[in-house]
Write a protein that binds this DNA or RNA. Structure first.
Length: 480
RNA sequence: GGCGAGUUGGCGGAGUGGUGACGCAGCGGAUUGCAAAUCCGUGUACAGGAGUUCGAUUCUCCUACUCGCCUCCA
């Protein structure tokens, strides 16, 4: 029996995790708005909750739980998507606006899948799209209006924040505090400045659906309430997302869901990951340090290197993406792949499971991976204990797999290496000659070019070996 | 202005009321034609102040600084 403990943002405490229904453990993660490529920050919650998902699946076997249901939505109703579709239509693209929107979101979802797959993230059980749940949203809004929690005004439907007395509990604010510090202009038809939109009218250039309040589209928050209810019920176990979603998005979800379904508790545990920075600064387009997961993959940074860097920082802390980390992680993963590709996994290390069970302490788990690897290296050099060596390597690989590392599916970067065969022979011959003549100038010259191109040059009595380093640039090998 | 998080060695980053993880970098050694890689060894830290305590980096309070949210945002 492994007891998972999670820090619950609602209570601000680390609590023992007990599923509502051990036969169906349910979690919901706020997914991306599919208007463009996922940036690096979008990837953090995906990796964090992938580790949680993997841990839950592992622990389920041990604890006799049933299935784990993991839902992550696609928000495909959004002004930026509309803008792209409209721009394409104006540029002469064929089809209705709805078709163009669909095409754009299909395209973006495809990218998202490819990029998250590269990070070794498992696909959730369900990936609902907001546009497939408009009916459920309308039904929920009607219920909220019917029970006095929401009201229609000028084609909009607004949630009446004052009708949910616990509003602000998750983010630790009160409605009065927020009004006092509010800096936003308030729409005149709002009863209360903090009331938020459930439904808004659409003009001809915007996607819209027929509703009791006219043709329009849902506000941002209602989709998660409607989809989590449809797929997980009025009460489920874990709800996750970035800390920036805590307010207003999650606060609003709670208010809507709890008012529409007072029979349920909505989410029992709230898990929020902290933000990501780049070289100590917030990632933003204006600072020029904005990049997508795809940018990194295209630069030759393997997805599992990105993943490993994420895991090295606890999810509750701000994570800084730096070039130094990238190199360090690349070297380490390279080493592991080099030594352990093809090793069959056994069972993950108990200590690593414990570390993960302790509020997803992935950093501690990464440290333990280092310890096991070192033990394995040491036992390998001691020929008297081959069984220990095998046990350690199998345990290492199983543990890495639990963390989503060293997976066969993310190992392409390692197997698709540059073919150094010709260069190795060339260097080897030069070396033999040099050893005889004691003239090392030509050998050193070639070595220098290789090193400058980012190649790791290994020469030993056993022979010559060339390996691509993190900065390997094949173009620099021309002329050899 | 309101709410929240954080401040550990050169860097990254865990953890604990009482001999200060782990990694990278550094230094010394083995190895190497020289290197690289690898292995062995090794130094340095708990923002500042006050308090609780036999004893605090770990608990409490204050100060400083950093960051996030309050507006689309992971």
């Amino acid at each position: 029996m492994t007891q998972i403990r999670l820090r619950n943002s609602m209570t601000r405490k680390v609590e023992d995790f007990t599923p509502i229904d051990a036969q169906n453990v349910r979690m919901y993660l706020c997914g991306p708005t599919v208007y463009d490529r996922a940036h690096l920050g979008n990837a953090r919650p995906v990796v964090v909750f992938d580790v949680l998902y993997r841990l839950l699946r592992h622990v389920a076997k041990e604890n006799g739980w049933g299935k784990i249901t993991y839902v992550r939505n696609f928000t495909d109703v959004d002004d930026k998507i509309n803008a792209t579709a409209l721009a394409r239509q104006k540029a002469g693209a064929e089809g209705s606006l709805e078709d163009l929107i669909r095409a754009r979101t299909e395209e973006t979802i495809g990218w998202y899948h490819a990029d998250m797959d590269a990070l070794g993230a498992l696909r959730p059980t369900y990936e609902p799209r907001a546009t497939d749940y408009i009916g459920a949203m309308i039904a929920m809004i009607e219920k909220l209006v019917g029970e006095g929690h929401a009201y229609a005004a000028e084609g909009h439907v607004l949630f009446r924040v004052r009708s949910y007395q616990k509003y602000g509990a998750l983010s630790g604010r009160t409605v009065d505090d927020m009004i006092a510090g509010a800096r936003v202009e308030v729409a005149p038809f709002k009863e209360d400045p903090m009331d938020f939109v459930l439904w808004k009218p659409s003009d001809a250039n915007e996607p819209g659906w027929d509703s009791p309040w006219g043709r329009g589209r849902p506000g941002w928050h209602i989709e998660c309430s409607a989809m989590s209810y449809e797929l997980l019920g009025a009460s489920f176990d874990i709800h996750g997302g970035g800390i920036d979603l805590q307010f207003p998005h999650h606060e609003n979800e709670i208010a809507q869901s709890c008012c529409a379904h007072p029979e349920g508790s909505f989410a029992n545990y709230w898990v929020h990951n902290e933000m990501l920075q780049v070289e100590g600064k917030k990632m933003s387009k204006s600072l020029g340090n904005f990049f997508t997961v795809r940018d990194l993959l295209d630069q030759g940074v393997p997805g599992e290197v990105i993943r490993y860097i994420f895991l090295r920082t606890h999810y509750s802390k701000t994570m800084d993406w730096t070039d130094e980390k990238r190199r360090d992680a690349y070297n380490r993963l390279y080493r592991w792949r080099e030594e352990l590709t093809g090793v069959k996994p056994s069972k993950p290390d108990e200590k690593i499971i414990d570390a993960l069970a302790n509020d997803l302490n992935t950093s501690e788990a990464a440290r333990l991976l280092d310890v096991i690897f070192l033990q394995w290296m040491q036992s390998k050099s001691d020929v008297s204990s081959p069984r220990e060596t095998e046990a350690n390597e199998a345990k290492f690989v199983a543990s890495a797999h639990l963390l989503g590392l060293l997976l066969p599916t993310t190992g392409e970067w390692f197997s698709k290496q540059f073919d150094f065969g010709v260069l190795e022979n060339q260097l080897s011959e030069l070396r033999d000659t040099a050893m005889e003549t004691k003239d090392f100038s030509k050998l050193d010259a070639m070595k220098q070019v290789l090193v400058a191109a980012g190649v790791e040059v290994r020469m030993s009595k056993a022979g010559v070996e060339l390996l691509p380093g993190p900065d390997f640039d094949p173009a620099k090998l021309e002329g050899l």
